[in-house]
Design a protein around this nucleic acid. Structure first.
Lengths: 236, 236
DNA sequence: AACGCAATCCTGTATATACAGGTTTACGGA
DNA sequence: TCCGTAAACCTGTATATACAGGATTGCGTT
């Protein structure tokens, strides 16, 4: 909250997400906002640019900034946010079951994904995500052990992201997601309520720290009928 | 190419995509770039910010800007670019078969997706995308007829995007993609080489113009084994 | 040789100003 | 009343300046 442009961004992002600003309504002009927040126009523009990039508003030259039609449950659109945040916003009942939490040596595949030597220790967390009473998502997290504070089952049941953000030793900077569709494994069938589904939506998530070192590799396996991914992109 | 920050952005985006700048290498400092391009530091910062947002570089406070490890075939990451651009970059042989091109009234589902009255005319294009000799993608495009110049089969075989961008009557501004996994339809089986696959990766693409009117709705149906979607996201 | 501190270079944030060009409003002449 | 033009307001781009704070370099003292 220290940065001016960030508080302006959060102000309007929150208002739009909560529906307190209706779609198509017009935001105050940049000059008006600058006066209202007691800052300069350039700072306001920084905040509006962020809102625009993230699909909250649309700016039209000569006219102003307008709230986009936003499906609340689509948020975050292609973001970095955790399962807990998304599940909480959706309003459905959800639950996380920590299947296993251990440290050890990575198998060769994970070691290659994490760009590390096979001798370095990692945290390995397996979690089952339950939504509406059905076990739908299987998350397999792998963390560089040396880079993060120690994990417990309780933390994994809540949100590892929140924990890491709070224990400000690590700063998450960016992430790359690769979505593919693959056959269900024996593990998927054992741990999830798969019904008759034979394929899974697989999201491989590569998370990087502020110094651009890869510190987390996650495989998130979703039952296909419950999978939905939203992406917002802008042409400059 | 008129905007200074845009030329700087393109300069470095191209260099990185083509591998002429190797990963982890350091870009010149903002002040150096400002001198080199004969512009101000703020303008350089605009270009670097764009590069950062789109996953080309990573900036570290006090150190500089560094080229990220980028898989050439992952580009564009969550972009708006057309099949032709992606297929051409991948280097594989590709082909587009225009199954049908017609104007008419939309069916109720498409009308609701396009936010229009059932009485307004639309263009309807169905295309099969062939990659490596296999029919893999089924694209069903729907355009507001009144908003775009007339289409021909030749244009559809190449790139509708390129055509629309050149015939500068319309300006594409942003797009929303929704990815889901659904059962294959009789139409999928008839038009594509589905092998044994019973499910499809479905990308619904909503494309908006500069004045934020929705003018295109596209359903892109991919054979699951060939589907791959990459997303890059940044924590601010 | 080792340590500590200052100088220097780097990016991040904020402010003020200027002009271009799109959009709307209002006024005045026909 | 109608039309056109000018004024006012809007966002887009570009420049110059200032200071905070992280990272690095190098010098000088111990």
């Amino acid at each position: 909250m220290e940065n001016i442009y960030w508080t302006i961004y959060r102000d309007y992002a929150d208002q739009i997400e909560q529906g307190r600003l209706s779609p198509d309504s017009k935001l105050p002009s940049e000059n008006q906002l600058a006066k209202r927040y007691g800052t300069s126009r350039e700072t306001v523009r920084k905040a509006l640019h962020l809102l625009s990039q993230n699909g909250y508003i649309h700016k039209i030259k000569g006219k102003g900034s307008f709230v986009l039609h936003v499906n609340k449950f689509d948020f975050p659109v292609s973001g970095l946010v955790s399962f807990k945040e998304v599940a909480t916003k959706s309003g459905k009942e959800w639950n996380t079951d920590v299947v296993s939490l251990e440290t050890g040596k990575p198998d060769p595949y994970v070691a290659s994904q994490l760009n590390i030597q096979g001798s370095e220790a990692i945290w390995k967390v397996v979690r089952v995500r339950e939504v509406g009473g059905e076990k739908i998502i299987l998350d397999k997290d792998h963390f560089h052990k040396g880079l993060i504070p120690p994990l417990t089952k309780d933390i994994c049941r809540e949100s590892i992201y929140e924990y890491l953000e709070r224990s400000s030793e690590v700063k998450i900077s960016f992430a790359k997601k690769v979505i593919t569709i693959e056959g269900a494994t024996e593990e998927d069938e054992r741990l999830l309520d798969l019904d008759r589904y034979a394929m899974m939506a697989v999201v491989r998530n590569y998370v990087y720290l502020d110094d651009s070192t890869l510190f987390q590799y996650t495989e998130s396996r979703h039952r296909p009928d419950k999978f939905r991914f939203v992406d917002f992109a802008r042409r400059y």
